[in-house]
């Protein structure tokens, strides 16, 4: 990457470092990013295709890989919509109304982000596992949540819990309630107001939250690892499948499957960048001219 160090704003001469300093700083930053960002990403694709296209393809269409893909999609398909509905409900109640304990509620919603993924899985094992609080009862009724698909879904919901809500709460707060009130005065019902006024106003923020939520849901490893039981073809998600292949020294296959997740990450980043641009547009648009 060739670095042409030009000041962002040419007019501000005093605010600009001498050219060699600029080159040095850019060089150092790039070196750091190469070691910690670009190379790790490149390694994934390099290793994935190291044994050729046919090995790559075979690793993806192998039955256990397909089962893992199916399970990951299932878990995301349940967790993301649930957390989306939750995010909308939480943002509506928090942004449009005043009530005591609001800031505590916001802190609690953010809580799952600060819990270690391993602990996020463990709490469900302690609740629903054989030795957990509800374990004996569940066992009696022949219900298995842990080391089964429901446990994976639960852990996924937990780790992606705050994503949509934390995008929507500040966005809805900044938009206030005047437009909703205007809709009500014009005769709209509560549902019409939500559907025609609130939702269109937050749609980009909602999509942003959903995309991040989905990326984490499909990529979660630690929490899912604790509750899964690693039963091949049954309770393995894509990341868990990657782990098993890697530990079996099946490196090419491990990276082939991992490249799927890396592509998901790149698509997520692209969508995120595009949406951030949209959200910025929206923010500048909504500032009144007068």
């Amino acid at each position: 990457m060739s670095a042409i160090a030009a000041p962002s704003v040419p007019a501000r001469r005093v605010n600009v470092e001498p050219l060699p300093v600029r080159w040095l700083l850019i060089g150092l930053a790039l070196l750091f990013l190469v070691g910690f960002l670009f190379l790790p990403l490149a390694v994934v694709f390099g290793q994935a295709f190291s044994k050729g296209w046919s090995v790559y393809w075979a690793a993806l269409v192998e039955p256990n890989a397909l089962a893992a893909i199916r399970l990951t999609l299932t878990a995301a398909l349940i967790a993301v919509p649930l957390n989306m509905v939750f995010g909308l409900a939480a943002a509506w109640s928090i942004a449009k109304f005043e009530f005591p304990g609001k800031s505590l509620l916001i802190t609690l919603i953010d809580l799952p982000f600060s819990v270690s993924p391993v602990v996020s899985g463990l709490i469900y094992v302690l609740l629903f596992g054989l030795h957990g609080w509800l374990g004996p009862w569940l066992h009696e009724h022949d219900i298995q949540l842990i080391f089964a698909v429901p446990g994976i879904v639960l852990a996924t919901i937990f780790v992606t819990f705050p994503f949509v809500a934390r995008e929507l709460i500040p966005l809805m707060q900044s938009q206030g309630t005047e437009e909703e009130e205007a809709a009500m005065v014009l005769g709209a019902s509560g549902w019409q107001t939500f559907w025609h006024v609130t939702l269109p106003n937050v749609k980009w923020g909602l999509l942003y939250g959903v995309i991040l939520c989905n990326a984490r849901a499909m990529g979660e490893f630690g929490a899912v690892s604790v509750v899964s039981g690693h039963i091949r073809g049954l309770t393995n998600t894509i990341p868990l499948h990657v782990e098993i292949l890697y530990n079996e020294y099946n490196t090419a296959a491990a990276f082939a499957v991992a490249s799927l997740l890396a592509m998901l990450a790149l698509v997520t980043l692209a969508a995120k960048t595009a949406l951030e641009w949209r959200l910025k547009q929206q923010a500048t648009q909504s500032t009144p001219l007068a």
Binding site: P40, L212, M218, G219, F221, P239, A254, A258, L264
Partner: peptide, 11 residues
């Protein structure tokens, strides 16, 4: 943020 941690780990 976007890359699953297992992928980052093996890489």
């Amino acid at each position: 943020f976007a890359l699953p941690t297992a992928v980052a780990g093996i890489s």
